[in-house]
Simulated scan of single mutants.
Amino acid sequence: MKVGFLFNHDALHQIRHTAPVIAEIVRFPGVQAVVLTSSPEQEAHVRALLGPAAEQVHFVRLRIGRLAEALDRTLRFVAPFRRVATLRENLPAFAALDVLVVPETTSLLLRDRFGLTGPRFVWIPHGAGDRSVGFRPVMRGFDLVLLSGAKVRDRMLAAGLIKLENHAIIGYPKFDTIDEAPPTRLFANDRPTVLYNPHFDPKLSSWYTMGKDVLAWFAQQSRVNLIVAPHVMLAKRRLHASVEHRIVHWRRDIERQYRDLPHIHVDMGSEASVDMTYTRAADIYLGDASSQIYEWIARPRPAIFLNAAGVAWAADPDFAHWRLGEVIDEVAALPAALDGAVTDPDRHRAAQEAAFAATFSRTDQPASRRAAAAIVERFGAA
């Protein structure tokens, strides 16, 4: 049985959600693992995560033609043109597989638009957040869905997105890649450190309307440090459009005056922004719609959420994570919210612990091993 693992994204943030499964599935007799990447950076990242297991894996580099390359240079900052072109122009590589494991839903275009009928499709979501984009009808197209825990499963079942027979709970493979060593020390002082982690969604993100004021406030004070580490896709594109919300925003650069301050660390998309370096090192979370809040509460700590769009969120399942901290509607409320986080850091501990337990299944078996076993059990091996 040939099991393919596809990595076909502008950024590297999805890789840790499925790559650990590769090292486990090659342990099964009769299984050949094939890694398909669309950039040298992706392949290098997967190889680094696999270590010696990479020697048991067949790597395939997916390429696109000159016309597609030219169009991508024009469109890459506003649309995922290259991702779709990579699927369309490499159909023989996908047709050779029995199973294709992906961390996103775009790959279903192989079957739904490009007519590929061969492989069975397995989805391991790259995150465990609450946004509506994580619960869309397109998800019904997968043959097997591997989920982090009961929270996501129950919502998908209720929406009819999965069936009892086509899913399994396996935990969160990304956690299998995280170093248990003490968090990295990023500042030469003992002040509390805030992680500002805005999403790229043009409606829900605080970056476009509040980000400049957030940076200005942290720049002029000396009470806390600040890590600015947005979702990596915020930095990848200039123009962010949401078909769902029918809104568009343009991303401005961060001014040099903020990058040069000793108590502010800016990271617009390095490896540290996706490997939990910052979620492990900081003391207070400041965000909006990013699913990284669920990685944050692996160790309960204060969280503050910026309601940039004025959402009526309290009873909305898309904002369930906002119950894990304090929600503020304007930057003027930030100083008081930070004071509360410092003086009463355990205010939301019970809610965070309950949310973590519901979101992530943890057993004595690594999530990646559980995922590999679920794939082989479902589709068999020669």
Rank of each mutant, 00 (worst) to 15 (best):
H321K: 05
L67H: 13
A309F: 04
E326P: 00
A128H: 07
R88W: 15
K174N: 11
M156L: 14
A358M: 11
A95P: 00
R47M: 10
W296Y: 10
R301P: 07
W322P: 08
R299N: 13
P366S: 04
P230V: 00
K212S: 14
E55K: 03
L286Q: 03
V342E: 14
V248W: 07
G118V: 06
L91W: 03
R136L: 14
A354K: 07
P80G: 10
G4V: 07
R63G: 04
K151V: 05
K163D: 15
A216V: 08
L195K: 02
D275P: 04
E295G: 06
A372K: 00
L116D: 06
S222C: 10
I170H: 00
D143C: 02
V57L: 09
H58C: 10
M1P: 10
P366F: 01
H321Y: 03
A373C: 06
H263Y: 08
P137W: 01
D179V: 03
A241V: 14
D143F: 00
A11V: 14
T359W: 01
A282V: 03
P335H: 03
I297C: 04
H348Q: 13
F175I: 07
G160F: 12
R88M: 12
D176E: 07
G30Y: 08
I297E: 10
E104N: 08
R155V: 13
L12V: 00
R256A: 15
I247C: 06
F379S: 05
V102K: 01
F77G: 11
D260L: 06
L49H: 12
